[in-house]
Design a protein around this nucleic acid. Structure first.
Lengths: 220, 220
DNA sequence: AATGCTTAAATTGTCGACAAAGTTTGTTTT
DNA sequence: AAAACAAACTTTGTCGACAATTTAAGCATT
């Protein structure tokens, strides 16, 4: 799809990004119906570009479309979250393995210094790392795999769903510092070119992450 | 997307399936440009449905689209094949793990008898299993994972690319009987509810499969 | 002859209108 | 009053035309 060129070119691009943002952040509620005519007036574009945007959202699994009926925003559920993290575990585990194989020494160095700079900020404001830092770390691993499929499925697809769960369930989580340590260990494994360990640690990291969010979800 | 409802409803569905078929089977050559107007006359539909079909193909990674420029059929390359199988290894490994966890006893029984019936046909015509049997086996594992993301990424996406490589590189491979044995072992692990082993065996199976195709590809 | 600019052709992006399918409402029938 | 049918309405699917952008061609210039 796009993956790299994240700057919108066409009108459909812009509308797609806006719609995705509004869905992820809950401006358009989960489970609600998406009327093409309604959206076309709201976002001030023709129905054609709305249709294209909705189609793209459907491939991201952010909306579900039925022929001759319409599209609905996906509903958030415990099962959906579990399935999401099952796939993340598989894909990001492999991404970590491939990152250990293919990332350049320079890229690894950048990532290490990135973690260092994050570490300083973690000391002060404890909830900084969660948003920016965590996202940044995972992005680098995934792109470091140099695998187009991995990159597009995760970055263009699953990550937006993950963020949707995080945002709409109000995650600020106390898992900040422990997650940080896990990131350190993963980077070390990659720096040592230990593919096996990198994959194992990443899978475990995501499992922990899942358990953390799952706890919150079942607690309400 | 669709995943389940594989019977086309709308005109865009039909065109999407036709186009996909023609691309996978090489009727439309790999790397060639897709002109919207040209295709709209060829398939006797309006440009709008061609556009929608092309957009869907883009999310399957069967074509690549650039804004204001157009779409091209993806090119087959050794790197592309390797990346494809890296993702398959991760996803289908996880699928096997989840199949061992979630498949019902009945589903497992069906799969075992399916392998039995295939075994008879393998004895006679040695190249039967490759097409129908192999596909059937992997489909059952993937759907057995009960994971929507896994199912859609693999069945709606990657498998068509895999088939494109197979068809266009003329694979009939002598790996028939060995692959069959590997399938047996995987099913056994699933029947024993041994998640760990099921994943390991599936990953190994796909690695072998990759090496087999890779050999052919580098040999020309 | 090669390079750069200008203009023409072709292709993609966007739009509004019409056709088809689904949904709702109101009426009739049991 | 409940169920079944029919008509009106709403929503999606499809189409042809126009606008914007890219590509190609032609011309002028060095």
């Amino acid at each position: 799809m796009l993956s790299n060129s994240e700057q919108p070119i066409t009108n459909a691009d812009r509308t797609f990004f806006k719609l995705r943002k509004d869905i992820v952040e809950g401006v358009i509620p989960a489970g609600s119906k998406l009327s093409e005519t309604e959206l076309s007036t709201k976002y001030e574009v023709s129905r054609a570009v709305i249709r294209e945007a909705i189609n793209r959202l459907a491939t991201c699994h952010l909306v579900e479309r039925k022929a001759n009926v319409g599209a609905r925003v996906v509903a958030l559920s415990p099962e959906g979250l579990i399935q999401l993290y099952q796939v993340r575990e598989a894909l990001e585990g492999m991404a970590a393995r491939l990152a250990a194989r293919y990332m350049s020494d320079e890229e690894i160095g950048d990532m290490q210094s990135l973690l260092d700079s994050h570490f300083d900020k973690v000391k002060d404001s404890h909830n900084y790392y969660q948003e920016a830092g965590d996202v940044d770390f995972h992005y680098r691993i995934v792109t470091g795999s140099k695998n187009e499929h991995l990159i597009s499925v995760l970055i263009d697809g699953l990550y937006h769903l993950v963020r949707m769960y995080r945002v709409q369930l109000g995650m600020a989580g106390p898992r900040v510092s422990t997650a940080f340590d896990e990131h350190r260990h993963i980077v070390n494994a990659i720096a040592n070119r230990d593919e096996e360990l990198a994959e194992i640690l990443m899978r475990r990291h995501i499992l922990y992450s899942k358990n953390n969010i799952e706890k919150k979800l079942n607690h309400d």
